[in-house]
Design a protein around this nucleic acid. Structure first.
Lengths: 118, 118
DNA sequence: CAACAAATTCAACAATTATTGAATTCCATT
DNA sequence: AATGGAATTCAATAATTGTTGAATTTGTTG
């Protein structure tokens, strides 16, 4: 990932409303949440919500899929993955400096659950 | 970490110049880099650079320490750690969805090097 | 097809953020 | 204490981004 692209993703998440939307979708998982339900939970006006959803979609952090009258939005975990990889890459010329990321702890927990080693 | 605080950090990183500064400092490691050297490497005017350094400092992503006439700036890895932890927490109600973060790969590599298991 | 609900788009305005030349502060050296 | 370099602050301006009511599109249902 290039710096310009990563900056776009970070800027998209760097707004309280958009971050709240994204976190909601991350916690909701692949099933997704429809726009009006998001607006209701976060107390956002429809037009404002659409503006932020469009922004997050444009940069590829979320995606919407129409299902009858509703549009279900869900987080794009792959994009998030790439962003975190970019942020932590080439850290400290290979020296240990990020020893306790919860990201890794979470992976540990997942392994403990599933029994898989990779 | 709260959403508001995380959004501030992400917004700080969500600007191409500031992200470039931060990445430079992450790669430089704890030793840090002085302001004019940063400006030279990234081709930024002094006043512009100061503005962005102040922003990154204010939110706690970097810190500057004076050494004679120079001010050495370095990345605050702890803050970065917390941010990544926030972004990846409560993901998908505990289901696996971020299986291949380089963050974790890097931890693996580090363990392979040091021989430590935690 | 008329009525309604979900969601977006539009347009106008408000608010915030970024850039930069000039002035200033801080420190070391002579 | 004067010179000069590192870095910041200031002030004015430029540019971008966010908000929202009203209008519009899209799809469902009576």
């Amino acid at each position: 990932m290039e710096t310009l692209n990563a900056a776009e993703l970070l800027a998209a998440l760097g707004h309280e409303s958009r971050l709240a939307i994204f976190r909601l979708l991350v916690e909701a998982g692949p099933a997704g949440v429809n726009a009006s339900a998001i607006g209701e939970q976060l107390g956002m006006a429809p037009a404002t919500l659409s503006f932020h959803l469009a922004h997050l979609s444009r940069v590829g952090l979320i995606a919407g899929e129409r299902e009858s009258r509703f549009i279900h939005y869900s987080a794009n975990f792959g994009t998030m993955d790439e962003l975190i990889a970019f942020l932590t890459s080439n850290c400290c010329q290979g020296e240990a400096c990020l020893p306790k990321t919860t990201c890794c702890d979470t992976t540990e927990k997942r392994r403990a659950k599933t029994g898989k080693t990779a």
